[in-house]
């Protein structure tokens, strides 16, 4: 990829074990590292626990064991609001805009924890520049936007807290190819603007083309990780996890 990545991870999940209720654990000693300024992509079959990794990282799910380290601090067991305050934003799967509110209101809600009005205004201006669609449809109802546009509003909203890490859960879900391209372009722009990204995506090949580091997840553990380009070139992985050889 030609990018120099930081040796100390910005976000690290160490030996995470977690499950839902009394069912068998979904994550079994999972360890993932996200360096600063990198896109790390989790790929794997359905049920591997990809979305669960993001829920644990953002505090929506409390791990049964293991540690979450964010920027050198142990944040294990913190709730979503505390994680947001620590600089970790989570863009949920599907469309999570407030449909009956304007794009402006949606974006401003992203900065709800910021008390200083001037900072909120400055951040809103910044995300409007970063996402032209958000700027163009600023006063439109978010529910009237197309799927791809709504996803960009969600990205913009997540950047309002100036996060160190953004967790993206299947950002291309339900989008047409053109909108998918736009969304992945925006993911790269977020990375280039200095935000680390932990990405979960069903469209594994497309995600690995965008990412710096890839992790293949299966049965609750990371089986293989490394530079995303190496994973893409690995024929065995292609057969097992990436839907066959590239055309």
């Amino acid at each position: 990829m030609g990018r120099t990545l930081a040796s100390v991870p910005l976000l690290e999940l160490r030996g995470i074990e977690v499950g839902y209720g009394r069912a068998a654990p979904v994550l079994r000693g999972l360890t993932v590292q996200v360096p600063a300024g990198a896109i790390v992509c989790l790929v794997g079959p359905n049920g591997a626990g990809k979305s669960t990794v993001l829920k644990v990282a953002s505090g929506l799910l409390r791990p049964q064991s293991g540690q979450i380290i964010l920027d050198g601090q142990d944040v294990t067991g913190q709730g979503p609001q505390q994680m947001l305050a620590c600089g970790l934003a989570h863009v949920l799967q599907g469309h999570s805009v407030f449909r009956e509110m304007t794009v402006a209101e949606n974006v401003l809600l992203g900065g709800y924890t910021i008390k200083d009005k001037a900072v909120v205004t400055e951040r809103a201006e910044r995300v409007r520049k970063l996402f032209p669609v958000v700027d163009e449809r600023w006063n439109a109802l978010a529910g009237l936007l197309s799927g791809g546009q709504q996803k960009q509003v969600e990205f913009a909203r997540s950047l309002m807290v100036n996060p160190k890490v953004v967790l993206l859960d299947e950002p291309s879900m339900g989008l047409d190819p053109k909108s998918t391209n736009t969304v992945f372009e925006q993911v790269v722009r977020m990375r280039d603007a200095g935000t680390a990204v932990l990405l979960v995506e069903q469209n594994a090949r497309r995600a690995l083309q965008t990412a710096d580091i890839g992790c293949v997840l299966d049965l609750g553990r990371v089986h293989i990780s490394g530079p995303a380009s190496d994973l893409l070139d690995n024929p065995l992985l292609g057969e097992l996890y990436l839907g066959g050889r590239p055309a």
């Binding site: 947001l84 009956e100 992203g110 709800y112 924890t113």
Partner: peptide
């Protein structure tokens, strides 16, 4: 009113 859980996750 729109989504209480989502609002909570954004710090409301």
């Amino acid at each position: 009113r729109e989504d209480e859980d989502k609002a909570e996750s954004l710090g409301t």
